[in-house]
Amino acid sequence: MSVDKATVQKIASLARIAVSEEEAERLVPELNNIIGWVEQLGEVDTSNVEPTTAVIPNTLRLREDVVTDGNVRDDVLANAPQAEHGFFAVPKVIE
């Protein structure tokens, strides 16, 4: 499988990263080199192999169903690029 410029632009759009025409051009061979290299995994017979879900056996724990945090609004907002009236502010979403 190899990617072309249109695919690079599609991936960039899925990843929400703006790329210019020139960047997309540059990324085509870079990504193809890497993708071509990882494709050697295709030669491994994995027909009876389960994909890894956890490297060290562990069980998912349950905790008591109680509130353990909250009342930290100002801490949560402290690093926001734009916080107004106790909210995160973003550009207008609905016209």
Binding site: V38, L41, G42, V44, T46, V49, E50, P51, T52, T53, V55
Partner: peptide, 11 residues
């Protein structure tokens, strides 16, 4: 890609 890589990881 991803599922195959996780199977190889098992191996």
């Amino acid at each position: 890609y991803y599922t195959q890589a996780q199977k190889v990881r098992t191996l």
